[in-house]
Design a protein around this nucleic acid. Structure first.
Lengths: 236, 236
DNA sequence: CGCATTCTTGATGTACCTCAACACTAGTGG
DNA sequence: CCACTAGTGTTGAGGTACATCAAGAATGCG
């Protein structure tokens, strides 16, 4: 009985991969999946572990972390609600996946999930499209990491976060000043942008001093002058 | 008649996506595809153009280039024989694709190719698996670009190229000294690794001076001490 | 041979890192 | 309620890896 309505109250039913399935088809996944909450800082998958789970992210933010043999770390991707989590068709997981905020997932055993993919071409196609999009994003980040200055990286990142904040219900127009909470610490922002925590902090205060942003305290940020920020994201 | 044997002499028949098709199925693609040679330096697809072609790379090396609004460039991916080229399900191309060496492709109109994908689940699955692999590679390069020193980048790159050279028939074992030709100029290596041409050159001579590699002239390189090179690729 | 491209090497600059100290915030227990 | 502490953020001083600017040496093609 409990199983039957896992998907009924799903917040991302129409945005996740499941949107490719009819209500009837959803029953199949229903019996396979189970909900799981994980706390901030908790790791879902360790790099090197057997890749045994796939999931849809229902709420929260996850980080995808790669590390060099000698321990330097880099966040190679962020996952948001409705994003697909995991590596189907892979032996071992390539990256460590950890929760940045309290998160909720809908988890499937990898092998069972692959079988569902095989039976549902629409879903497989949707996953392909998402993977292609993720590839484009990853490659764009390669450009950004290799060729942008710290200032440009920070400005671009803040615009990204602002866009995502507006997308998540906050407000419709990205023009004009807006305030929201960053879901990442300075250290995590540094890990995303390939900088150090000090450089992130300094660039933020530089933007604050220039009147482009304000930092009301806590993890909040207000974009006072989006155009100026945009300009700094593309500065020569 | 000419159409009938496009695939007959295909060098990558068993490695490209087409390996998922039976000889009979191949007939369908046969009528869609056409061979095309492009010269070194010639561009196949410009970023921003409508994404209207997909292709298999038969021979040669292509670069995938991203650029910032103000003109800085970065190679975000390299494509080798049997690799898939193009962006299905995309409106515009995200990156410029240019030949680094004379290359030969087997080209399909994108819309026709997508229809083939829809009719051939095995092929679509193979493309999904390749795209997932490419995503992993791109993310690993994010780590490398953001957190590795110039020395580590160069060492890792040379090992990569050596591996690829051995894979392409040269010799079986990657141990012991080996010589091969780099398909990229110093400038292109710099574009791949997010460095400048001068830094690439300096690091190469540093490796040469240390006796780890030798540069017999031209575009040739010999890896004299693979272990030492491996060590420098992971240096603290 | 001569010209263009690629490669090397040097001198100098600077953006970012490293090390270090201190301020703020938030959660804990007395 | 307020000290106490751990985590997080800010700011400064100094160093360094890489970029930039500049000149010359190889290589390769017509």
């Amino acid at each position: 009985m409990a199983h039957h309505d896992i998907c009924a109250d799903c917040a991302v039913r129409d945005q996740a991969l499941c949107s490719s399935l009819t209500d009837v088809e959803l029953q199949a996944l229903n019996t396979l999946g189970r909900r799981r909450k994980i706390a901030r800082g908790q790791t879902l998958i360790w790099a090197g572990d057997d890749s045994i789970i796939c999931a849809n992210l229902l709420s929260g933010v996850l980080k995808l972390v790669a590390a060099t043999p000698n321990g330097r770390e880099q966040i190679v991707g962020l996952l948001y609600p409705a994003d697909f989590v995991g590596q189907p068709y892979a032996g071992q997981a390539d990256f460590t996946i950890t929760a940045l905020t309290e998160s909720e997932l809908c988890i499937f055993p990898r092998d069972a999930f692959e079988r569902v993919l095989e039976d549902h071409a629409r879903m497989e196609r949707l996953l392909l499209q998402r993977t292609l999009a993720a590839l484009g994003i990853a490659r764009t980040r390669i450009l950004s990491l290799a060729r942008q200055s710290a200032q440009e990286k920070i400005a671009g990142f803040l615009l990204d976060m602002a866009l995502r904040a507006t997308a998540t219900g906050c407000r419709a127009t990205p023009d004009g000043p807006m305030t929201f909470d960053l879901p990442l610490t300075r250290g995590q922002i540094a890990d995303v942008l390939g900088l150090t925590i000090e450089t992130v902090s300094r660039q933020m205060t530089r933007l604050k001093t220039a009147g482009v942003i304000a930092l009301p305290g806590g993890r909040a940020i207000t974009i006072s002058d989006p155009d100026a920020l945009q300009g700094r994201a593309e500065a020569a």
